[in-house]
Amino acid sequence: MNTTPDETTLALWLDDELTGADLAAVDAWAAGRPDQLEAREENRRYKAALRAAVPASVEPPSPEFFNARIARMIETSADAAPAAARERTVEVPVWLSPRSWFMPAAAAAGMLLAFWIGSNTGDPRTPAMQAGAQPDVYVPESGVNAEWLAAEDKSGVIVLTGVSAIPDTTDFSQTVYLPMPREIDRTAGQGRDSGIR
């Protein structure tokens, strides 16, 4: 090559991106130009040093959990499957087609069945409750009495007597999880529920 390569070609040559005839042409042009050859060597040394110090690939911490969390995020998202998979056309039998006679007929039969079941099912309460008898209430601690108070609307209240007072020193924060507002926001907005921080 007798003519000087343009800037783009020269930049590609300096970064070892040229191949074939283009590479041969610029190599021939640079053969008599030690400054260009030195510039390419300097570029190679610089990149080698950079890549030795800063790896191109670093496994993320907890790689198995990394993958599992991605899978969970995908499953819980609206796009549980790529659109291509969602839009796949599946051969549906004619008798299952929503536009066929089968669906309206099945819906009507279902309604009739539900009506029959509803009209032939008795009171779900136990016989004792229907008769107004008090239910048996079991307490896990001796010395504690339980009294059932039935209300008119067939609901009831259980009153416990003999339960020892709860000490003031009890730390409820150890027994109940109270999410902080920030945690709620992060979970809802970002999906960042990781415990790795």
């Binding site: 993320p60 991605i70 995908i74 998202s77 790529p82 790795i196």
Partner: peptide, 16 residues
């Protein structure tokens, strides 16, 4: 760590 996971979730959604 978080952004990388978001990238792969977005890639899944845009895969088609």
């Amino acid at each position: 760590w978080d952004i990388s996971q978001d990238v792969f979730v977005k890639a899944w959604q845009a895969l088609p």
